[in-house]
C-alpha cells in the first residue's frame, strides 16, 4: 500500500530550480533514503513534503489525500512527522516537556477545560504523560526526563528529537540526517534504533543521510539527487554500481584505480 506519493514535484526559487521533477513512492514499512552531495536539494524536498515550502509544480499525496502546500501543522496531524538537520529541540524546556508538547495536536479539550482541569482534560493529560514516559523509556531517556533538553549529549538529543516526532503518532517519519555528527558506535546504535522503531510503531521512514554505512545497510531503496535532479533510483546494490552516481557523488572510484 502506497502511503506517501510525490509526483513530478519541482521547487523553483526565482531563477534557481532547487528540485526538479522529484518522484517518490513510500509504502508501509519501507525505509527509503535520499542521498546526494551538499546543496543537491535534499532538505528542500523534505521541506516540500512537510509543508514548509509549497511546491512550484507537482503534487504530493498522503494516503490518497492531496497535501500539496498544506500548513506544516496540518500535515503533521495527518501523520507525517519529521526531525531536523540541525537539531531543533525546545532547548530550555525539560526532556519530558519536549515529548509532551508533541502530544498537544491530538488534545481534544479546549483551553478552558485545560485551565480549569476538568475531568476530560485530566484524563487526557494522564494518558499523554504515560505515553510520553513510555516513549522516553524506549529511547533510554527516562532518567533524564526532568533535565533541560539542551543539557543532553548530542546523540541523546538526536534520540529525543526522534522520540518527540514519534509522540505525534506518525505513520511516516522523515529523518533529516539522523546520523550527522555521530561517532561509529552511535551510528551503529542509531541503525539498530531505526529498525526498532519502524517495527514497533509500524512506520515508513524516509531519510536523508550522508553516512554511506547507515544508508546502504538500512535502506530498501535509495534515491540520488544531484543539483536538484534525480539521477538514480534503486536498491542499495544498484546504486552502488550505478556509474552516474559514482561520477556525480561518490567520485572516489578514480582514486582507487
Amino acid at each position: 500500500m502506497t502511503l506517501l506519493e510525490v509526483k513530478n514535484v519541482s521547487m523553483i526559487f526565482g531563477g534557481l530550480t532547487a528540485v526538479k521533477d522529484f518522484n517518490l513512492t513510500l509504502s508501509k514499512g519501507e525505509i527509503v533514503a535520499l542521498i546526494g552531495p551538499n546543496g543537491a536539494g535534499k532538505t528542500t524536498a523534505f521541506n516540500m513534503i512537510t509543508g514548509v515550502y509549497k511546491p512550484s509544480i507537482g503534487q504530493i499525496s498522503f494516503k490518497g489525500n492531496d497535501i500539496t502546500g498544506c500548513r506544516p501543522d496540518l500535515i503533521t496531524k495527518q501523520g507525517i512527522a519529521r526531525t531536523f538537520q540541525n537539531i531543533r529541540l525546545f532547548k530550555d524546556l525539560t526532556v519530558l516537556d519536549n515529548v509532551l508538547i508533541a502530544n498537544h495536536l491530538h488534545l481534544k479539550s479546549n483551553f478552558l477545560e485545560a485551565t480549569l482541569k476538568l475531568p476530560r482534560y485530566r484524563r487526557e493529560e494522564k494518558e499523554i504523560r504515560e505515553k510520553s514516559l513510555g516513549l522516553l523509556e524506549k529511547v533510554g531517556l527516562v532518567n533524564a526526563q526532568s533535565e533541560k533538553a539542551s543539557s543532553l549529549p548530542y546523540g541523546m538529543q538526536r534520540r529525543l528529537e526522534i522520540a518527540r516526532a514519534l509522540a505525534t503518532n506518525p505513520e511516516v517519519l522523515l529523518l533529516d540526517e539522523p546520523a550527522a555528527g555521530m561517532n561509529p558506535k552511535e551510528t551503529d546504535d542509531l541503525t539498530e534504533f531505526i529498525y526498532q522503531i519502524r517495527d514497533e510503531f509500524q512506520l515508513s521512514i524516509f531519510m536523508i543521510e550522508h553516512h554511506m554505512q547507515v544508508v546502504m545497510g538500512i535502506s530498501d531503496r535509495i534515491t540520488v539527487f544531484d543539483h536538484g535532479v534525480t539521477i538514480a533510483e534503486g536498491t542499495p546494490y544498484e546504486i552502488q554500481n550505478n556509474q552516474k552516481v559514482i561520477e556525480a557523488y561518490l567520485g572516489v572510484a578514480e582514486d582507487y584505480a
Binding site: V52, D73, A81, R82, F90, D92, I101, T168
Partner: peptide, 19 residues
C-alpha cells in the same frame, strides 16, 4: 506547553502539529 514551544522554536512547534 504549546505556548512555550512557540516561544522556543516556531518552526519546530509548527512541525510538531501546533497551529
Amino acid at each position: 506547553r504549546a505556548f512555550k514551544a512557540i516561544r522556543e522554536d516556531e518552526i519546530a512547534a509548527e512541525s510538531m502539529g501546533i497551529s
